[in-house]
Design a binder for these strands. Sequence first.
RNA 1: CUCAAUUA
Length: 245
Amino acid sequence: VVTYNTLMDGYCLVNEVNKAKDAFNTMTKRGVTPNVRSYNIMIKGYCKIKMVDEAISLFKEMHRKNLVPDTITYNSIIDGLCKSGRISYVWELVDEMHNSGQPPNVITYSSLLDTLCKNNHLDKAIALFKKIEDQGIQPNVYTYTILIDGLCKGRRLKTAQDLFQHLLIEGFHPNVRTYNVMINGLCIEGLLDEAMTLCTKMEDNGCLPDAVTFETIIRALLEKDEKDKAENLLRAMITRGLLKV
RNA sequence: CUCAAUUA
């Protein structure tokens, strides 16, 4: 089973979900019974290429074969449904999670938080974040990054910055993505000097800026016709090997 | 062997 699962996961990773499904069928034919992980891999694979209905049918197939979906199974479909905008079914599944004694975890909530943010339901997102904490679930760096990103894109920079501070106070270590999200937020508001300062600061904090960091700032600089500064950053990228020349 | 977040 492990061998087949690894193979399927590899195919899904490169979006060759049909080949993954072939492997899935082959294992069955050879008398190897797919386990929950096999289904989880296929469900995520289908969600990734937006074939959510296939994912749902596999989910139902699990029930028929008396396989009990675990938290990862739920999280994967919920995330797939969220990303394809089929929110109503999501809430049913969240209820089902509670009823089946596998309550949503921080990852489930991260998916939900992300959709709320991306659909401009910022207030609901903030409420959900509080609800997560109230339930005694520790938000992690992902959770914070998602909400900070939502706040930045919803033009609520101040709140985003407060949350970023809060994250530091709580002793979390922001990673490259967290910084990138904050930097993008500053760029959106045209605060390019602040963005560049934060870029320096992240490096001081032991977090190396990556290509996204630079591209974000460069793009913003060019929009403001700050061609010289942009060029300097481009050179910096080349020096750091972030840009092939 | 399986789940969530960033520029374009």
